[in-house]
Simulated assay, not measured.
Amino acid sequence: MIQFDHISKQYGDFTALKDLNLTLENGEIFGLIGHNGAGKTTTISLLTSIIEPTNGSILVDGLELSQHRDEIKKQIAYVPDSPDIFLNLTAREYWNFLATIYGVDHETAKERIDSLSLLFDIKERQYETIDSYSHGMRQKTIIIGALIPNPDIWVLDEPLTGLDPQASFDLKEMMKEHAQKGNTVLFSTHVLSVAEQLCDRIGILRKGEIIFVGTLDELKNQYPNKDLETIYLELAGRQTEVKVGEDE
Rank of each mutant, 00 (worst) to 15 (best):
L24G: 03
R112W: 15
F212N: 07
I204Y: 02
L59P: 06
L205Y: 04
Q180V: 01
R92T: 05
I231D: 03
S66W: 05
F212P: 05
A77R: 02
K172L: 09
L17F: 08
N225R: 06
A195I: 10
D19S: 04
I130V: 14
T23K: 07
F86D: 10
F14M: 13
E28I: 12
I101H: 07
L89C: 05
D152I: 13
D227N: 14
A167K: 10
N225L: 01
A99V: 06
E177P: 07
A16I: 12
Y232N: 02
V185M: 06
R112S: 05
K172Y: 04
A77L: 03
F169H: 11
N36Y: 01
G145Q: 11
H135D: 12
M174R: 10
H6I: 13
P224W: 01
T41S: 08
L59V: 11
Q139D: 00
A236C: 05
C199H: 10
R138H: 11
A109L: 13
S168A: 13
V213T: 15
I7A: 15
D227V: 06
A77C: 07
S117M: 12
E177V: 09
I144V: 15
E71L: 12
K40D: 00
I7G: 12
I76F: 00
L216V: 11
I51P: 04
E107D: 02
D164L: 05
I33N: 01
L147V: 13
I51V: 09
L46C: 07
P149A: 08
M137Y: 14
D105K: 13
I51A: 04
N150M: 11
D247V: 14
K181A: 15
I143T: 03
M1K: 09
G203N: 13
D131S: 08
A179F: 10
Y223M: 14
L47D: 03
S66D: 09
I44A: 02
K40L: 06
I204A: 00
V104I: 14
R69V: 08
W154F: 13
G34H: 02
L46E: 06
I231Y: 02
L119M: 14
L63M: 13
V213A: 00
I2N: 08
I58R: 00
I144F: 14
S82I: 03
G214K: 05
K243H: 12
E173N: 14
A99Q: 03
A16F: 07
L147Y: 10
N36G: 04
P149K: 04
T48A: 02
V194H: 08
L192C: 05
Y102K: 07
E196Y: 08
P159K: 04
D5Q: 10
E209M: 11
V244N: 10
K123T: 13
T42V: 09
I44F: 01
L186H: 08
N21F: 05
T41C: 05
I76P: 07
L32D: 01
G62H: 04
S132L: 04
I76G: 09
F169A: 00
L118P: 14
K181L: 09
E246M: 09
I122N: 09
T41Q: 03
F30D: 02
G103P: 13
V191S: 00
I204F: 01
H35Y: 03
E107T: 14
